Simulated scan of single mutants.
Amino acid sequence: MSSHQHSSFHITSSQLHLNWSKSLTPVMTVPSGSEITFDLRDGGNLQIRPDNAATSLSDFDFSQADPAQGPIYIDTAEPGDVLKIEFLDLVPGSYGWTAIFPGFGLLSDEFPDPVLKIWDLSPSKKTATFKSGIEVPVRPFLGIVGVAPAVEGELSTIPPYAKSGGNMDCRDLSRKGSTLYLPVNVPGALFSCGDGHAAQGDGEVCGTAIETTMKVRLRLTVEKRSLRQERGYAIQCPHFVTPPPTKEDVEARMAAESKGEYAVLGIHEDMREATRMAVRGMIDWLEAEKGLTRVEAYMLASVGAGLKFAEVVDMPNFGVVCSMPLSVFVE
């Protein structure tokens, strides 16, 4: 891809939409294989900033949240094809934020009050300081990556969708070096993305990650239906490939694993309640052993904890693990 082609396709921060729809007018048309750059707003649509931190949560308008930027029409993309999205570069903004909103989040019934944290995301830092002695590794990715749905009408940008992606909030799916495959539902695919995150734990349990603006470069390539037919399967939901670790990744992982992790196993007949139990147990431990307030512990779990199923076959109960790398505690 020549530098001229690279620079010719750019999406500005004003080219956005707040619903998914196959009726949206594309902001540009590009050939398959194009590299495109984006100046992305954050998931709060720039409503939360250091200069208005004191009032931003009380004034927050949820109807303006989770903007997606685009849509982009990709030549030759037709229903039944697959759109291949390669994430080439992601650069967070200079600050980020994490918030607890009343009525939103995995434990919203236990955390009724609004709380906001502003993070310093200075480019020279590989971690973001949660508080003295606690550092969260910066691992940028996009929360929103999607294409238009085939259904009539409009869909909210807040939840994800099996056939078109959207606000998937999966921290490995859209980081630098990853490749995502989405089914094409409408002519041109109508691709959009947004919701930059500097870091996030699995589950984004308090409802937010380290939300930030993002400068992004990616490549969009159409894989025709015939290619998948030759391989004998179809893409019915998002598939993705993560990149091999760099030397820096390996060193960081070894350093993290050398300190181990603390984990809690939630067990319940309902998957959601098993997850709530595990996260609640992690909050209890962070509060008692690490001196955090419950609100701080909930936020730290949201930006730094891991979640995984331990088992899903021994009915009637499910096992869900919430883990925290002990490497985040640097003192």
Score class of each variant (00 low, 15 high):
F104T: 11
G105I: 12
L106N: 10
L106G: 12
L106R: 13
S108L: 11
S108D: 14
S108P: 09
F111N: 13
D113I: 07
P114I: 13
P114T: 14
P114F: 14
V115Y: 15
L116P: 14
I118K: 10
W119T: 03
W119V: 00
D120F: 11
L121A: 10
L121C: 12
S122C: 10
P123V: 08
K125H: 14
K126W: 06
S132T: 11
G133A: 05
E135D: 13
V136I: 15
P137K: 01
R139Q: 15
F141G: 07
L142Q: 04
L142F: 08
I144C: 06
V145I: 13
G146I: 08
G146D: 03
G146L: 08
A148P: 01
P149Y: 09
V151R: 13
E152A: 15
G153L: 13
E154W: 00
L155I: 03
S156V: 09
T157E: 02
T157A: 07
P160Q: 10
P160D: 12
A162T: 02
S164I: 00
N167Y: 01
N167E: 02
C170W: 01
K176H: 02
S178K: 07
S178P: 11
S178N: 07
Y181F: 15
L182S: 01
P183R: 00
P183K: 00
N185A: 05
N185F: 08
V186E: 06
G188R: 08
A189I: 01
L190A: 05
F191I: 05
S192R: 06
G194D: 04
G194V: 04
D195C: 12
G196C: 08
A198P: 09
A199Y: 10
A199L: 10
G201W: 01
D202C: 11
G203W: 00
G207F: 00
A209D: 00
A209H: 07
I210D: 03
E211L: 07
E211I: 00
T212S: 11
T213G: 08
K215W: 00
L218S: 05
L218C: 12
L220T: 05
E223N: 10
E223I: 15
S226K: 12
E230W: 08
R231G: 04
Y233P: 07
Y233W: 12
A234I: 04
I235T: 11
I235M: 04
